Simulated assay, not measured.
Amino acid sequence: MPSNDPTLQEGIAAQLAHDAHYLGTDGDGANHYWSQYERTVYVVNDDTVESWAFTETPMTTLTDWLTHVESKRGAWEDHRVGTGGVAAIIAGHDSTECP
């Protein structure tokens, strides 16, 4: 008999904003997603999702977030934002070096 229960991935996806894009995996193994529309970062660690709206943090740019996470959790294992990428657009710069 088929089950209508969502899979773990479907449950996590339902908690992310519709425009959330993968940023990368931090040094502790949590995956980070960014919603430009919501100006919110979503952190997925195992089966939990935490959201961090920039209006509720001292962060003003995505580059600030990336730097903060690296200082707290160690070097990024994987990240998809680099020179001239999304962080540069959000920060309003032509190019930026991200951790």
Results as ranks from 00 to 15, higher is better:
Pro2Cys: 12
Pro2His: 14
Pro2Leu: 14
Ser3Thr: 12
Ser3Lys: 13
Pro6His: 10
Leu8Met: 10
Gln9Phe: 10
Ile12Tyr: 09
Ala13His: 11
Ala14Glu: 14
Gln15Asp: 08
Leu16Ile: 06
Ala17Ser: 12
Ala17Gly: 07
Ala17Asp: 14
His21Arg: 04
His21Val: 00
Tyr22Leu: 00
Leu23His: 03
Leu23Tyr: 03
Gly24Tyr: 02
Gly24Arg: 00
Gly24Asn: 00
Thr25Ile: 04
Thr25Asn: 01
Thr25Arg: 00
Asp26Arg: 00
Gly27Thr: 06
Asp28Gln: 08
Asp28Phe: 06
Asp28Ala: 05
Gly29Thr: 02
Asn31Asp: 05
Asn31His: 05
Asn31Val: 01
His32Pro: 05
His32Ala: 02
Ser35Asp: 05
Ser35Phe: 04
Ser35Gln: 03
Glu38Pro: 04
Glu38Gly: 02
Glu38Leu: 02
Glu38Ala: 04
Val41Thr: 01
Val43Trp: 05
Val44Cys: 02
Asn45Gly: 05
Asp46Val: 09
Asp47Leu: 09
Thr48His: 14
Glu50Leu: 12
Glu50Phe: 06
Glu50His: 10
Ser51Glu: 13
Ser51Pro: 10
Trp52Gln: 12
Trp52Lys: 13
Ala53Asn: 14
Phe54Gly: 12
Phe54Ile: 10
Phe54Cys: 12
Thr55Ser: 15
Glu56Thr: 12
Glu56Pro: 15
Thr57Leu: 15
Thr57Gln: 15
Pro58Ile: 07
Met59Gly: 08
Thr60Leu: 13
Thr61His: 12
Leu62Thr: 00
Asp64Glu: 11
Trp65Lys: 04
Trp65Leu: 07
Leu66Trp: 06
Thr67Ala: 07
Val69Trp: 07
Glu70Asp: 10
Ser71Met: 10
Ser71Ala: 09
Ser71Arg: 14
Lys72Ser: 11
Arg73Ala: 04
Gly74Gln: 02
Gly74Trp: 05
Trp76Lys: 00
Trp76Met: 01
Trp76Gln: 00
Glu77Lys: 00
Glu77Gly: 01
Glu77Ala: 02
His79Cys: 01
Val81Cys: 03
Gly82Glu: 06
Thr83Ser: 08
Thr83His: 13
Thr83Gln: 08
Gly84Cys: 05
Gly84Met: 06
Gly85Thr: 06
Gly85Ala: 05
Gly85Lys: 10
Gly85Met: 06
Gly85Gln: 06
Val86Met: 09
Val86His: 10
Ala87Ile: 03
Ala87Leu: 07
Ala87Phe: 12
Ala87Met: 07
Ala87Ser: 09
Ile90Arg: 15
Ile90Glu: 14
Ile90Lys: 15
Ile90Pro: 13
Ala91Gln: 13
Gly92Lys: 12
Gly92Ser: 09
Gly92Thr: 10
Gly92Trp: 08
His93Phe: 08
His93Cys: 09
Ser95Thr: 13
Thr96Ala: 06
Cys98Gly: 07
Cys98Gln: 13
Pro99Asp: 04
